[in-house]
Amino acid sequence: MSTQTIAQSSTWGGGNSPFKVSYGKLMMWVFLLSDAFTFSSLLTAYGAIRYSFSSTDTFIEDVTPAKLEADGIPMRDGRIDFTFADNLIEKYTPDAAAHTSHGAEAHADHTDYFVQKMGETGIFSESHWPSPDLVFNHFPGFGVIDFHGMHLPLIFVSLMTLILILSSVTMVLAVEAGQRADKDAVSKWMLWTIIGGFMFLGCQAWEWTQFIGAGSRMYSNPYGPPTFAALFFGVTGFHGFHVFSGVVLNIIIYVNNLMGTYEKRGHYEMVEKVGLYWHFVDLVWVFVFTFFYLI
């Protein structure tokens, strides 16, 4: 090929793309690199501030089980028994019918009881960073299956992770369909990606509702140091807004594709570029999940 010799003789001399990427895609990657620095500084600040406090885990180890039991904390095998759903149901909703309604009030009882007890014993205090185990342990109820009042750490956020990974898969399938110039398949997979994005945002909204409902604000919270809630709102809020922006971009791409914009243009690279952004949002979530919920 004649074009090959020209490209080889002057790879960096201008008049071609040395990296064989379009201008738009190159710039998307450069933007994502800068955004990776932004999120890493947020997570770095979180790690540094968190590790300047002692954690509830070490605090719980230092307190004798006998003292905790005397303070009214349910114990099992020398450790705090967090599966105290039964205690809660008996204590606050003796009427079984009232419990199955699982309205906002039943849940407020759980939050008040748990958070209050933890505060009374000094496990939740401004001098200990709360273990995510003790804060994000809720799961919403669905009709007959009621998870309210149960200690289920990590389960809800694992579901959110699954939703985001799945929406990343549907996005990459849309990109793959674009590479084959299959307009209908692009539409189908973009629609699934948009649905996944809304599902994740809905979960995020529920998570925030629980957190705020327990009394957390930007400058104070019942779980631990004020910076705990400030960083939670800051980092998950910043990530959530990225997800929201991603959903808006995905909708624009979906509508453009329906109108045949990319078919006329002759390539579906816009799907790929927005896809890069969407995968980046998933990538950031991997680390938010790691640093906020797992560690």
């Binding site: 020209i6 793959e176 690279e269």
Partner: peptide
């Protein structure tokens, strides 16, 4: 690539299939 126009140029793309995904 001969009359390279950076404002519109995109490389040829081809699918790598869905199995790996």
């Amino acid at each position: 690539e001969v009359n390279y126009d950076p404002t519109v140029w995109v490389p040829h793309t081809h699918s790598h299939g869905t199995k790996d995904i």
